[in-house]
Write a protein that binds this DNA or RNA. Structure first.
Lengths: 252, 252
DNA sequence: CGTGTTTATCGTCAGGCAGACGACTATGAT
DNA sequence: ATCATAGTCGTCTGCCTGACGATAAACACG
C-alpha cells in the first residue's frame, strides 16, 4: 500500500496529569473544575493540548507548571528544590472518549511534596487537592444528588491507573522521596508509604529497612522535632533509584 | 481560554509493535522492511495508522494479526490456543520523530510463542525474527558498511523499552508463559527466562521456585521427552498473574 | 545389552531478610 | 515531675534463596 497523506484521520493529542501529593496522612490528587463543555462545571484532571512544536514530556511539564507552579525535577540536578517527579503513565484513545472529536490523551504521573496551594489560572476555587479515595469512590455513584459527580471523561480510570502506578512503584524505587521535602525524617517517609498504601507499618522495621538500604537515604547531619517527640535525624534522597530488595507492601 | 476547535494542531496517530518471541535460546523481535520513504528499505517495527473508528488496543491487535496471524489472548478465555499477550508499552511523540508530519506513536508490546514463520503481506523476505541483541547493537554502528543499519525512526529506542519491560515483567508476573506453547515443561519455561534475561539459572532452584508458587503452574498429567532426557511433566499456565514473592533475576 | 549423555526432580544446608515485638532515649506538654 | 509522643537499637524466629549433592528416567551408541 503506497503512502497516501490522506489515508490517516487527524487526531487531537492532549496531555492529562495525575498529580499526587500527601496531605494530612492521605493521598491526594489535583483536580480542576472544567469551565466549558463538555462536562462543564465538573471536576477533571488538569491537562491540555499538545502544541505543534512540543514534545510530549515538554507539554506535560508545561501543564504541570501552569497548574501548580512546580518545576520538573531534573534527574541530572538532584539537589534542586521544589522539583516534582514526572513520568509518562499511559495513553487513552478510545474512539468515543471525547464527544467533540477524536482525542488521544497521553496521561502523565507527577509526584509532588505537600506545599503548594493549588491555583488554576489564579482562581483557587477552580482547583483543589482531593483525597483519591474520595475521587475514586464517586465513580460508584451514578444517581444525581448522591454525593459529588465523578470526574469528567475517563479521568476516573486514568486516576486509578496513576494511583496504582504510584503504589507499586514506591515498592521497588526510591520514588516515595518525591513526596517529601528536600530534607525529611524516616518517620515522615514512613507516613508517605502509609498514606500511599493505606496501611500501617511498623516504625522499627521500617527504620531498619530504609536506613539499611545503601544509597536510599543520606544523612544531612541535622535533626528536627517538627513531628514532636524525640528529635529525628534528617536525610536527603540518595542517588539510588532502584531498591533491591524492594520494600514489601503488606498484603491486603 | 474558551474552546476553539482550531486551537489545536492535527496529529497522525500510529501504533507500533514490539513483538517478542524466543527462538533457539535467544530473544527475538519481529522486524519488517519498509517499502516506502522515509527509511525505505530499512528494517522497522511493524505498525500502522490508527483508524478513525478504532480504539488503540483494537488497532494494535489488528496490526498484530496482519503481521503474524496471531490472535490476542483474551484474559477471559485463558485456554485459547495460539494467543499472544498484548499490552500498551509507551507513547513516543517527539516533534521531529517523523520527517513527513507530526506523528504520535502508541507502542505496544506483544509476547508470542515460537511458531509462526513471519509474513508481511505474504512476502517473507520483508519480515523476519531478529535477535534483539543484534537489533540493539546496530544502533552503535553509525558508519556505512559496518554491519546492517539500525532500525528506522526511533524504533531502536522503542524496542529497547519493550525488551526492558519484558525483562522486568517476567520477574513479578507469570508473563513468561506467554512465550510458551499451551503445554510446556519446567525446563522449557526456564529456557524462556534464560533467553529473556540472558543468564543461566540453576535448574533445581528454578524447579523448586516455580512449582512451589501457588497458581503459577497447573500440571496437566502428561509428560513429554521432546527436550530429550528424562520425561518431564507438562504444565499449563495457572490463573495467577502476579508472582509473590517474585522470581529473582541474578544481578548483572 | 551395558554405558554414557542428557534432562528432570528431590534433598540438604547455610546465610540473609522480614515480621513481631521488647527496651531505651530524647523531646514537649501538663 | 510526670506523661505522651516519636525515634532508635536489638533480639528472635521463620521463610526464602543460592549452592550443590544425589537419584531417576529416557535416548544414543557401541
Amino acid at each position: 500500500m503506497p503512502y497516501d497523506p490522506s489515508a490517516f484521520p487527524p487526531f487531537a493529542v492532549t496531555v492529562d496529569l495525575v498529580v499526587l501529593t500527601v496531605r494530612r496522612h492521605s493521598l491526594c490528587a489535583l483536580a480542576v473544575r472544567r469551565g466549558e463543555p463538555p462536562f462543564q462545571g465538573r471536576w477533571a484532571l488538569p491537562g491540555g493540548f499538545v502544541r505543534a512544536d512540543e514534545d510530549l514530556a515538554q507539554a506535560a511539564a508545561r501543564e504541570l507548571a501552569e497548574e501548580t507552579g512546580l518545576c520538573v525535577h531534573d534527574p541530572a540536578a538532584p539537589t534542586q528544590d521544589n522539583g516534582a517527579h514526572l513520568e509518562q503513565l499511559a495513553t487513552y484513545g478510545d474512539h468515543e472518549r471525547d464527544p467533540r472529536m477524536r482525542v488521544v490523551s497521553v496521561a502523565h504521573l507527577a509526584l509532588a511534596p505537600d506545599l503548594p496551594a493549588p491555583r488554576a489560572g489564579g482562581d483557587a476555587s477552580n482547583a483543589r487537592w482531593a483525597p483519591v479515595e474520595e475521587l475514586l469512590e464517586q465513580a460508584g455513584y451514578g444517581r444525581d444528588g448522591e454525593g459529588p459527580a465523578p470526574l469528567a471523561f475517563d479521568h476516573t480510570h486514568i486516576l486509578a491507573d496513576g494511583v496504582e502506578r504510584a503504589r507499586s512503584k514506591i515498592e521497588y524505587s526510591s520514588l516515595a522521596t518525591a513526596f517529601c521535602p528536600p530534607e525529611f525524617t524516616v518517620g515522615e517517609l514512613r507516613r508517605v508509604y502509609e498514606a500511599v498504601w493505606g496501611v500501617a507499618l511498623d516504625p522499627r522495621n521500617f527504620h531498619r529497612k530504609v536506613t539499611g538500604t545503601p544509597g536510599f537515604l543520606v544523612p544531612t547531619g541535622g535533626t528536627t522535632t517538627r513531628q514532636g517527640g524525640r528529635p529525628a535525624q534528617l536525610f536527603r534522597a540518595g542517588g539510588a533509584t532502584l531498591l533491591n530488595p524492594p520494600m514489601l507492601r503488606p498484603e491486603v
